[in-house]
Amino acid sequence: MVERHEVRLSGSGGQGMLLAGIILAEAAILADKNAVQSQSYGPEARGGASRSEVVISNTDIDYPKVTQPEIFMALTQEAYNKYHHDLGPNALLVVDESLSLTDDLPEKSRVVRVPIIESATETLKRPIVANIVALGVLVGASSIVEHEFIEKAVLNRVPRGTEELNRRALDLGFQLAAGAVGGNK
């Protein structure tokens, strides 16, 4: 059976959403799936809201763009406001605790609203790894790829010497996802 998953990761330019998308796609490839990652370019990529999108499939991916995300992550209110309008049914939303949600979400969407940025800043003392915490929450809440592959993909990509920090960030994300009261909307 063809399984096609569409994921959108969004935040402000510089929050590392592009890298998070690349890592997610690489994790899918490590899991022997196909993946296509694309992103917003131009002025968007230099501040304001920015997004990175990933299509993951167990077979060839024809149309490479995301049209109805089933997983949507937003780290800032601006990104949420800009990019949440075309979510698919049963969408999973992974958002930072600081965000306030609107009431136009699809029926049966599931929201995981956890302190991603605060955890990176307070627990890890490194706000720069918020994107990896977020990735942990996303994968933990969705199981879109197995833990071992996302961990391997993270470690393959991050700068040498930061592996331990990033592993902790990822694990923290998984813990946040596990502890989250992820009820239906």
Partner: peptide, 10 residues
């Protein structure tokens, strides 16, 4: 095209 040039794929 920009889609092929910029997207990432296996």
């Amino acid at each position: 095209d920009e889609v092929v040039g910029h997207m990432r794929e296996k």
